[in-house]
Computed example of a mutant assay.
Amino acid sequence: MANVRICMIGAGRVGKLHSGTLRRHVPGGELVALVDPFQKVLDETGDQFEIDRRFSSLEQALEAVDFDAVVITTPTPTHRDLAVLAAEQGKHVFLEKPMALTLAECDDIMSATARHGVILQMGFMRRFDPDFAAAWERIQAGEIGEVMIIKSLTHGPGLPPPWATDLKTSNGNLAEVNSHDLDTARWLSASTPLRMYVEVANFKGAERGVTSDHYYDNMFATVKFESGAMASISGVCPCDYGYDSRVEIVGKKGIMQIGELKGESIVVGIDRDQGLVTPIFRRWPDRFRWGYIRELEHFVDCVHAERRPIVTGEDGRWAVAMVLAGTRSFLEERPVYLQEVITSNG
């Protein structure tokens, strides 16, 4: 079976991660081209992963290289145009979250991929993480009974890039960081979100030079689902102490927990004053290493088999809808029904 030839769009942090994954862990996927408008970043990633065909735009790559699919890792405002162009050229699309800035943009992407008969897979890697996938299967099997409450948190180190701190070019940390929590809660509850209420706070922005209007580095959301289930989502970025992702699910029959604060099953004793020390995850690629590998394996397998991925544009659209409802909630200081943003189409 021939390899799936892939063009990586975006040579930054996530582009590096996916390029390394394709090179080392997905033998059925062949990385044949790299796109990024910034020459220094383009050459750095191209040199690191021995990608010879390098371009400043997708249009240039389409003219010069034959490939089957794209992996899009660029900033959110670029997603709609890149995904639509790729679909129009018959290329399968793996699209990093968040899917887009608005529901109208999500609809454009979904329409283009459906119209041209190409696959669209969203980059919600938690669904492919062994722990999360096992938890989902056990919940589906009824082990803890009907889901009543989900508590999900993502606390990440590092300040977001400048474009992501401004609500004019991004939907904030609720989208860029906590989209994963929103998707996880909807996925594990197996229900449609009904309404959201969000509170935000800015504790570190001023001291780190962030001046964007409505910037927040702490977020707490509550979600009510149509099934009656409820979710709470905590977001902190930057949190400084490391990368922290944990979920607790309370069902009618019991409780299930996914993840823990420590990153390795290692305990070190140095002296009696410091006590016992155990490391935590430093970065998100460390925590979700297998999720990132398995999601790209799944994408390549779906292209080969011409079948629908398990994470689709519909999932990406729902996450964007929840982000928009949450943003409206903290801006207007009230609970917001999902139907409000769906009716207005974002």
Rank of each mutant, 00 (worst) to 15 (best):
N218D: 11
I342H: 08
G90A: 10
H116N: 15
L85S: 10
A325L: 11
A305D: 10
V303I: 14
G158M: 05
D183Q: 04
H92Y: 11
S234Q: 07
E137W: 13
S111V: 13
F299T: 06
A190F: 06
L167F: 10
I72A: 05
L261A: 14
T154E: 07
V14I: 15
S191N: 13
W290E: 03
G326E: 04
S234V: 07
V32S: 12
P238H: 06
E63K: 15
N202W: 11
G235M: 07
G142K: 11
R334I: 07
S245R: 01
L95E: 00
A201R: 14
T184A: 04
Q274R: 15
D271Q: 15
L95R: 03
F288I: 05
P98E: 06
Q339F: 02
Q121S: 12
S191G: 13
D273L: 15
G313V: 01
I150Y: 03
R195N: 14
Y197C: 08
V4K: 02
R328E: 04
D286A: 13
L17E: 03
A190R: 13
E332I: 05
M1T: 07
C302T: 07
F128E: 00
R317M: 09
H214A: 10
N171P: 02
L34S: 02
A221N: 04
S179V: 04
T102Q: 09
R307G: 06
R138L: 08
L331S: 00
H116E: 08
I266F: 13
A86W: 02
R282K: 12
V323I: 10
I119V: 15
I6K: 00
E260Y: 08
M1A: 09
D108L: 12
Y197T: 10
R328H: 02
L338C: 11
V267M: 15
D108F: 12
F94E: 01
G117W: 02
A221H: 01
P98W: 01
W136L: 11
W187H: 15
R334W: 09
D131N: 14
A175T: 08
I144V: 14
V323P: 02
L22A: 03
P37D: 03
D166L: 03
E59C: 12
G228E: 06
I270S: 13
I119W: 04
H116A: 08
T154F: 03
C106M: 12
D181M: 13
K151G: 08
T154G: 05
L62V: 07
S245T: 04
D108G: 12
V200Q: 01
L34V: 06
G263D: 00
I255A: 10
T76G: 04
R126C: 00
D183P: 01
H79M: 04
H304P: 01
H214G: 04
K204E: 08
A141P: 01
F225Y: 15
G12M: 06
D52F: 07
R115I: 04
S344N: 11
R308D: 06
A201Y: 06
W163M: 08
A86R: 03
L188Q: 04
L42G: 03
V311Q: 06
T312I: 09
L194G: 09
D301A: 08
G205S: 06
L82W: 02
E226T: 15
N171E: 03
